[in-house]
Simulated assay, not measured.
Amino acid sequence: MELYQLRTFVTVAQQGHLTQAAELLHLSQPAVTAQIKALEEQFGLALFERYPGGVQLTEAGKLLMPDAEQILAQARDLLHKGKALQGEPKGKVKIGTIGVPARLRLGAWLSLLRDTFPLITVQTTHGISVSILNEVRKKSLDGGFYLGRNPYQNVMTLPLDEIGFCIALPVSMAAEYQNADWPKLGEAPWLGLSQYTSLADISQELWRSHNLAPKVVGEFDEEATLLELIKSGVGIGILAERTAQRFASDGSIVLWRGGEVVTRAPLQFIYSGDRVSDPMMHKLCATLKTIWNLG
């Protein structure tokens, strides 16, 4: 069964006349007759009754008519959708992510991107800020999320938010340090941070601003690792405010001075300066602005 046969069936039924249907379909009457006959043979049913003034549907034809019309309507919709996609942007983009996906509003962004530009495919790579920055500079990634200040002029930034940070303490150290002043905090064991993460710069700036030179325990590069080590009593460290508040609420950690925000860092979407005029990058940034209510 072919769509053109169904189209002929529906047209003949609507016109009630083979000649008039043939004119609308730009076919000869014998061609129309042949198509109807072919359908009747496939169904094993007579679809029309012939009479001197034209044709009319049999009872079987009347039952099949709505389904034939629905199939033709779906075919038209499919054709229109396909034509609409001709001008849609298409291709794969590689995006670097950091930290907690919810903090990046990653799910909402990728959902909007898929709904708005269905032919764009996204591949994500999780890492730490400095590695994402380097991959964007090398153009191994089309774009990515970055926490901290961007030091490169050839990397463009779309500011999204500012993340506040709190000092988190193990429960075992709460009595000694929960309300301590900065010099006293400097005596505590602090969790060190890898030079490849933006948290290292954030911590160093915080220590310098308060003239601290704390004893550093280890070197770590993920917030999840810091959290586990704080819970385990290894040392104190900085955590993003929302993470800190969430785990302080269940008593697994304690926050210095009740969760005072001690420093902030910009969260940004970054991409190569060579992509400023790239339509694909415009679409990525436009949908990010929508999700982050940036106007």
Rank of each mutant, 00 (worst) to 15 (best):
M1A: 12
M1T: 11
M1D: 06
E2H: 13
E2T: 13
L3K: 09
Q5M: 14
F9H: 06
T11L: 01
Q14S: 13
T19I: 11
Q20F: 04
E23Q: 15
L25K: 06
S28G: 15
P30E: 10
T33S: 15
Q35K: 15
Q35P: 02
K37M: 08
A46P: 02
L47S: 00
F48K: 04
F48G: 05
Q56A: 12
Q56K: 14
Q56I: 07
L57S: 05
E59F: 07
G61D: 08
K62W: 01
L63W: 06
L63T: 13
D67C: 06
E69R: 14
Q70T: 11
I71Q: 14
H80W: 04
H80A: 11
G82M: 10
K83Q: 15
K83R: 15
A84T: 07
L85G: 05
K94R: 15
I95K: 09
G96A: 02
T97F: 01
T97L: 04
V100E: 15
P101F: 08
R103L: 13
R105Y: 11
R105S: 12
A108M: 09
L113A: 08
D115Y: 07
P118D: 03
Q123W: 00
G127I: 02
I128P: 01
S129L: 04
S131Y: 11
V136Q: 10
K139P: 03
S140W: 12
L141Y: 07
D142F: 06
G143H: 05
L147W: 13
Y152D: 13
N154G: 02
N154C: 01
V155Y: 05
I163N: 05
I167C: 03
L169A: 02
V171Q: 11
S172G: 09
M173V: 05
M173D: 09
A175H: 09
Y177T: 00
Q178F: 00
A180G: 02
A180I: 04
A180H: 07
D181H: 01
W182L: 12
W182P: 00
L185A: 00
G186L: 02
L193C: 12
L193F: 08
S194Q: 07
Q195F: 12
S198V: 03
S198M: 09
L199E: 10
L199F: 11
A200Y: 15
E205L: 12
E205H: 13
W207S: 01
R208W: 10
S209E: 10
S209P: 01
L212W: 04
K215N: 11
V216T: 09
E219T: 12
F220N: 11
D221W: 13
E223W: 06
A224N: 10
T225G: 02
T225N: 07
L226Q: 07
L229T: 02
L229G: 01
I230K: 03
I230H: 06
I230M: 12
K231C: 05
G235W: 04
I238P: 06
L239R: 06
E241C: 02
R242H: 13
Q245E: 13
S249A: 15
L255S: 04
L255R: 03
L255A: 09
V261K: 06
V262K: 00
R264H: 14
A265K: 09
Y271K: 08
Y271I: 04
S272L: 08
V276W: 08
P279N: 04
M280Q: 08
W292V: 05
L294D: 06
